[in-house]
Nucleic acid binder design. Structure first.
Lengths: 216, 216, 216, 216
DNA sequence: TCCTAACCGAGACGGTACGTCCTGTCTTATG
DNA sequence: CATAAGACAGGACGTACCGTCTCGGTTAGGA
């Protein structure tokens, strides 16, 4: 990713890193994270489970939190934002995907814990959490909307994507962690809510257009 | 919460608890929480700052998390859900109050951290977090809606209060911690979004009513 | 030893230290020290063998070196400087005692290692090593000489006790660690050497006395 | 020590070792040793200061201790045992040289630390320490005595060189590390002590000779 | 002129220990 | 009984080294 590395096919000096190691650590971290949560996940434990020395962990990640971010990111990497033909279908799929991810207490809890860490270090951990976690969740909504605009279903000025993304992700997360699990009724309710927003905006646009025609 | 003990005139045997102590501890805990966040808040540190022995802490709260919940609850106790005359005004006030609370990284971060803990122990910590934190945030929305129903602005079946509350609180929280601070534009956008939902539902109700009249 | 503690029979506040613990740690440290030497003795290992938490070690000794000093001092505490009736006999006994102690590579090696540490920190570790180890070895010679002076065997100005002590302890130590074990021949040789010094000084004193008589 | 390899004209295959490297490492090691002592000297640090890879160190010395021995030996190589015309003068010079070397805490401490290591491994490290360090210190005394015998000042059976050497080196070392720095008074006292031994032995030899003459 | 063996730097790796910090429990003496 | 004080078992943190290893690349002599 760094410029130097990109346009250079010369390998870095020194013994290259063991390829399998990173995967082993990531897998171990994900397991421990699922078992114990961010707070009780220990580098010692992860190293042992990965069959790796603790120093190897610290060579690759500066601290426990960074490793946790990486491990959760690995889970979020599974996010698929498929094309379902319409904004409505895409949104439903996005919300259900978010619900699927955050419903699992280990994933939802980990995400919340890392957001909490972000609050303490907005530049360091915060940036990483944003770049490798939050954006990925936001993509669930953002790409749906982008596709809808391409299809001509909606106009770009009709929706604030960032707001919408925070609404979707935030709602699902809060429901998952604070109020109860995001069941089908909740998902339906949320979709209906968003559908009503769309209805109102399209309706108002149509009224405005007919008014403009009348003025002619 | 400790009203039961206070109001009882059957005093427990032995030396009674120092009244000032609880306040001192709470104050100290809130400070430490603001300085370091839940993860790095330590009972040792809180005790020292409160000028109190560690055992006094554990006599009153079974563990660090419970004390943290108590300390955050003390902040959430400041929530005021005033009557502003209309649903729209009440909602705006509620959202702004939520934004005010969660914008502070120490409060927002602490709430997220405690939600994360809830994920690990939904019955113990989870219940406490729900009862003394989440409900209080939900109240921001719930009482507004209840009042609107009383006033006859809306019908009870027109809105799922729990859903709405999760949407408001969740959106504001996620914006605060993940995407950026909930500034005025965000608050306005969120209000507009909810207003559009109301518009759609009222509009549809009106259409349905006129259709019903026509059928007569 | 501190003034406050001395004239106070009031116990220090807080839970008193477990009496058995210090002995268990000392014993464990001495064993580990004998097995591995100062450099390879580990606090982890000592704690485990003593059946005690590592934090208990650090509560009592600020670092590994101090504990090692304490452990070696416990061995040196066995030093007995008995009265054998004459300076010659006392000296022989003292030298043999020194040889007995330092011949054991674990004790001799530990003492050397701690002297090496003293060189790095003459005020901290250095003072402790001097006060609890070196003085105890010096006592082997110093008390013998003091007794001889009491008995009238020699005059106080005939011998520099500090020098003599360094000669005895240093010779035995260097022989133990560098050249070979201090066997009987070595001990005999050293005693003979010291006896010759005494002979020379007494002889010269006698000559001087008769010369003085002659001058009268 | 490496003379065998150097004198051989059957050069080993492959790239020859960089000549300057060994000196750079030795110099760096001596500096680090002086700064931190044997225990805190680290191969990593020495390599960095010498501007050399860690593997280069291990290619030449099997472990840290051996390098330390080598570095101290480089200091001891400065020992000069000049001829000062008489045993007394040579001994004074030898003692002063020993005091000069061991007075420096870094040298004295290093020597003690390596003696301590010897105790743990008498055959491996022990042999090296003996051969390249202790013998060199013993030489301070041994050559003086040898020269005195050549000159006819004393008879070979009058003195146990090994004993004498341990006495001189051990005394100076112990004084340097444990009791205080070997100042002029100490050196004078030690010389006087040895002079008295000589006096006693020569005197007794003379008495015995005259007794033998009388018996004739 | 290539080949080969050893050198060198860089740095990853498995380990081990350090000394610090904190948790939650306990044991005292005193109010 | 509450409280201050602090000992205790336990556990994790992040750091620092050790000695080994695996690379790419260098530098000679011998084929």
């Amino acid at each position: 990713m760094t410029t130097r590395a990109r346009h250079s096919h010369h390998r870095r000096p020194g013994r290259p890193r063991e390829e399998a190691t990173e995967q082993a650590i990531t897998a171990a971290a994900r397991q421990v994270l699922a078992d114990k949560g961010v707070a009780r996940m220990s580098m010692e434990h992860v190293a042992a489970r990965a069959g790796v020395a603790k120093s190897t962990l610290y060579r690759r990640w500066p601290s426990k939190v960074e490793l946790a971010v990486h491990a959760v990111a690995a889970t979020f990497d599974e996010i698929e934002v498929g094309d379902h033909g319409s904004l409505a279908a895409d949104m439903r799929s996005g919300i259900e995907e978010a619900a699927r991810l955050l419903r699992d207490p280990s994933t939802g809890g980990a995400y919340a814990a890392l957001l909490a860490e972000s609050a303490r270090d907005p530049e360091g951990v915060g940036t990483q959490v944003r770049e490798s976690l939050s954006t990925r969740l936001h993509a669930l909504v953002a790409t749906s909307v982008a596709r809808a605009i391409e299809r001509g279903e909606i106009q770009p000025d009709m929706v604030d994507v960032d707001l919408l993304a925070d609404v979707v992700v935030g709602s699902v997360m809060h429901r998952s962690l604070a109020t109860g699990v995001p069941d089908q009724a909740f998902v339906d309710g949320l979709i209906e809510l968003l559908a009503d927003v769309a209805y109102a905006r399209l309706h108002r646009a149509a009224v405005a257009a007919s008014a403009a025609r009348a003025t002619d």
